[in-house]
């Protein structure tokens, strides 16, 4: 089936099998391998991307469902050499250990901050309900989100 999906501002037209998951479209058809596959069953959040501005899990969405929509992946967050404030905060606060969950963490938390610009620490932890860090590096992830909120709000 032919689909037209805009990813990081660029329109891609591809002929794909209906069973292709959005995450596989992003990784295999487009070669954007920043989005990771963890659990395949919408629990771990490693595959989180934005679709029409909202965080979704791209392992639990067929690419055909994204036809005609706008998708943003981790590769679309920086503007040239300037990192997104959330990326910068993750760097600054060392909000990662192995880094596998980081793209999903950044996509989930940037979407969250759009609706909740000034979250408490408890709210940040609650917002990360669907993103697992198996290194258990949550402390610095939460600190990074807090820092990003302050930067954006400042």
């Amino acid at each position: 089936m032919k689909v037209s999906i805009t990813v990081n501002g660029k329109l891609y037209v591809r002929d794909i099998e209906p069973r292709m998951l959005l995450v596989n479209f992003i990784r295999e058809e487009l070669g954007l391998t920043g989005t990771n596959v963890g659990c395949d069953t919408s629990q771990c959040g490693a595959c989180t991307v934005h679709m029409d501005g909202r965080a979704i899990k791209s392992c639990t969405c067929f690419a055909v469902q994204a036809d005609g929509r706008q998708v943003t992946t981790i590769e679309g967050m920086a503007s040239g050499d300037t990192l997104h404030p959330m990326q910068e905060a993750f760097w600054e606060k060392h909000g990662l250990q192995c880094g596998f969950c980081t793209p999903g963490m950044i996509m989930a938390t940037t979407a969250y901050l759009k609706d909740h610009p000034n979250p408490t620490e408890a709210e940040i932890r609650h917002a990360l309900d669907g993103n697992f860090c198996r290194c258990t590096g949550y402390q610095n992830i939460v600190a990074a989100v807090k820092t990003a909120a302050e930067k954006v709000g400042a």
């Binding site: 998951l21 395949d40 069953t41 919408s42 392992c59 639990t60 969405c61 067929f62 055909v64 469902q65």
Partner: peptide, 26 residues
């Protein structure tokens, strides 16, 4: 029927569900 697919697609990923046709009502 396929709407959000958040129960169906995980089951399909695990091949617990293998519907022959999906009707996307989304």
């Amino acid at each position: 029927a396929l709407a959000g697919g958040h129960s169906l697609i995980p089951a399909m990923n695990l091949r617990v569900a293998q519907p022959g046709e999906l009707v996307d009502i989304g």
